[in-house]
């Protein structure tokens, strides 16, 4: 039963107020993309056992989407940040690196 702080309204929401939305920072491929690119956009997922960046919506709340950095093996949350970001913010990356020195970094 996770708690994530919604960066849009500041509520420390519990999991039942949220809906999960899968991996964050996916790049959309539309018409004109190759089969491989489109397949990767639709299906290839990092699915890491460890640090993960993912989408959440504060569904029973302000209704906004936001992103979270979370460990899938311990459920530790490193931070949440606005959905309008195309890659993890530097401060969150730094925080993760401090806590998990052997983390290979985003990408």
């Amino acid at each position: 039963m996770l708690i994530l702080e919604c960066p849009c309204c500041g509520v420390k929401a519990e999991e039942t107020e949220l809906s999960p939305g899968g991996e964050a920072h996916l790049k959309r491929f539309g018409p004109g993309s190759s089969d491989e690119e489109f397949e990767a956009y639709m299906f290839a997922r990092k699915n890491p056992k460890g640090v993960h960046f993912e989408r959440w919506r504060h569904a029973y709340g302000c209704g906004k989407w936001f992103l979270a950095a979370r460990c899938t093996a311990t459920l530790e949350v490193f931070g949440t940040y606005p959905a309008q970001t195309s890659e993890p913010p530097a401060d969150i990356v730094a925080k993760i690196k401090a806590k998990r020195p052997d983390w290979k970094g985003y990408k």
Partner: peptide, 14 residues
Amino acid sequence: TDGFNNYTQRGSFH
């Protein structure tokens, strides 16, 4: 099932 990636063998109680 939960809707988020999880390797803990513990799901969400709700």
